[in-house]
Simulated assay, not measured.
Amino acid sequence: MEIQHLSQNELAQRWRISPYTLEKWRMQGLGPRYIKLGNRVVYRQEDVEAHENSHTHIGTSQPVVCQGGGV
Rank of each mutant, 00 (worst) to 15 (best):
H57E: 11
W25E: 04
T21M: 07
L30G: 00
H55Y: 08
I17T: 05
Q13P: 01
L22C: 03
G69F: 01
E46P: 00
H55I: 07
R26C: 06
H55E: 12
E23W: 00
E46A: 05
Q62N: 11
V42Q: 07
G29P: 07
V64R: 15
V48M: 07
H57V: 12
N53P: 07
T56F: 15
T60Q: 15
G69Y: 01
Q62M: 10
V65Y: 12
N39Q: 15
S61T: 15
P19H: 02
S18A: 08
R16L: 12
E46Y: 02
L22S: 06
L22H: 06
S18F: 01
P63Y: 08
Q62S: 11
Q8W: 00
Q4P: 03
R14A: 13
I17Q: 03
A50K: 14
Q13F: 09
G70N: 09
R40P: 00
T60G: 14
E2Y: 12
L30M: 09
Q62D: 11
V71I: 10
V65F: 11
R33D: 06
G31S: 01
W25P: 00
I3N: 12
K24W: 04
Q8E: 10
E46T: 08
E46R: 07
L11N: 04
S54G: 09
D47R: 08
T21K: 08
P19E: 04
E10T: 00
V71R: 11
W25C: 02
Q62F: 08
R26S: 05
K24M: 04
K24T: 05
Y20E: 06
T60Y: 14
Q8M: 03
Y34K: 01
S61G: 12
K36T: 07
A50S: 14
K36D: 12
Q67R: 14
A12M: 01
V64E: 14
I58C: 13
M27D: 14
W25A: 00
T60V: 15
Y43A: 01
Q28P: 00
W25K: 07
R40N: 05
R14Y: 14
V42N: 03
G68V: 03
H55T: 10
Q4V: 13
Y20L: 08
G69N: 02
H51S: 09
M1N: 13
V48Y: 07
K36Q: 14
Q4F: 14
V71H: 12
Y34A: 04
G69I: 05
A50L: 11
Y20D: 10
L37T: 04
Y20P: 00
D47W: 13
M27S: 15
M1H: 14
L30A: 05
R44E: 10
L11M: 10
L30T: 01
L22I: 03
T60W: 15
Y20W: 02
Y20G: 05
P63E: 13
L6N: 06
Q67C: 05
A12L: 03
V42I: 13
P32V: 03
G59Q: 10
L11A: 05
L37H: 04
W15H: 07
W25S: 01
S61L: 15
I17R: 02
Q4E: 11
S54Q: 13
L37Y: 04
L11V: 06
A12Y: 08
E52P: 06
P63C: 04
L37R: 11
K36H: 01
S54R: 12
Y34G: 04
L6F: 15
L6E: 09
L22R: 01
R14P: 08
Y43Q: 05
R16V: 08
Q67P: 00
G29C: 10
M1A: 14
R16Y: 05
V42A: 05
